[in-house]
Amino acid sequence: GKESLSEALLAISGKLKKEVNPKACWFAVEKDLHDPQCRQRHLVVELAKKLPGRPWTDAQPFHDQMFNRQAFNWTQQQEALNTGELSSWVSLRPGRRRDVEDPFVTSRSWLCNELEQGQSREHVYFRVVLEQKKLDEALEKIPYYRLFGADTSTRFFKLFIRGDESSPILLGELGGEVVPDQTTLELTKVTREVEGHRIKGTTETLPC
């Protein structure tokens, strides 16, 4: 009902304890992917941290509303501070940010060295071995979780570097059907024996 909706909106309104990057925030009304008939809708709000990569450790992201009341402008200085805070508000555009809005950071020809693939009884795996130096350079510009992107359906898969989506790392039709919402993407490392090394058993650890 209207009352429950108002309470829900009030619960996600207030002064945040941590700063965000307003220009990178967005909101959208989206379909519930777990609803077979896609009749349900959800309001999705994404706030971009001003300092990405650092966790917000507080369970409650907002200041206590009881002690966050609007101050009366006793002086011109207080009035100027309140006016400045209001003028810093940014009106968000509805809809998710598109991948094409991501800045160019690196390309697949610089970053990607090898492609390995395999499968188990339940999963199909793709491993892209990366160039450590180029990866370090890329991570100086953006956090690791904004470097790669992936799109998948039951039969098609696309893996790309954000900001260079027009040159995907992988793109094609799969040999069978998969479950899109159970597909995962992670940045990790692999340790393996160096082929052709004069000392047998020599290993190397590479990002992938």
Results as ranks from 00 to 15, higher is better:
residue 5 L to M: 15
residue 7 E to I: 06
residue 21 N to E: 15
residue 29 V to I: 14
residue 30 E to V: 15
residue 33 L to P: 11
residue 34 H to Y: 15
residue 35 D to T: 01
residue 39 R to H: 13
residue 39 R to I: 08
residue 42 H to T: 00
residue 44 V to W: 06
residue 44 V to L: 09
residue 52 P to Q: 02
residue 57 T to K: 08
residue 57 T to I: 07
residue 58 D to H: 07
residue 58 D to V: 03
residue 74 W to E: 12
residue 80 A to F: 04
residue 81 L to G: 04
residue 82 N to E: 14
residue 83 T to Y: 08
residue 84 G to D: 14
residue 88 S to F: 03
residue 88 S to I: 02
residue 90 V to I: 11
residue 92 L to F: 06
residue 98 R to Q: 08
residue 100 V to G: 03
residue 101 E to L: 12
residue 108 R to A: 11
residue 111 L to S: 01
residue 114 E to R: 13
residue 117 Q to C: 09
residue 123 H to G: 02
residue 124 V to M: 05
residue 125 Y to D: 00
residue 125 Y to V: 12
residue 126 F to L: 10
residue 129 V to H: 11
residue 130 L to P: 00
residue 131 E to G: 02
residue 131 E to C: 10
residue 133 K to M: 07
residue 134 K to Q: 15
residue 135 L to P: 13
residue 139 L to R: 00
residue 142 I to K: 02
residue 143 P to N: 05
residue 144 Y to H: 11
residue 146 R to I: 03
residue 147 L to F: 02
residue 147 L to Q: 02
residue 152 T to G: 11
residue 152 T to E: 10
residue 155 R to C: 14
residue 157 F to P: 12
residue 160 F to K: 04
residue 161 I to M: 13
residue 166 S to N: 15
residue 167 S to C: 13
residue 171 L to T: 12
residue 174 L to T: 05
residue 180 P to R: 06
residue 181 D to N: 10
residue 183 T to A: 12
residue 184 T to A: 11
residue 184 T to E: 09
residue 184 T to Y: 00
residue 185 L to I: 06
residue 186 E to Q: 09
residue 187 L to N: 00
residue 188 T to W: 00
residue 200 K to N: 13
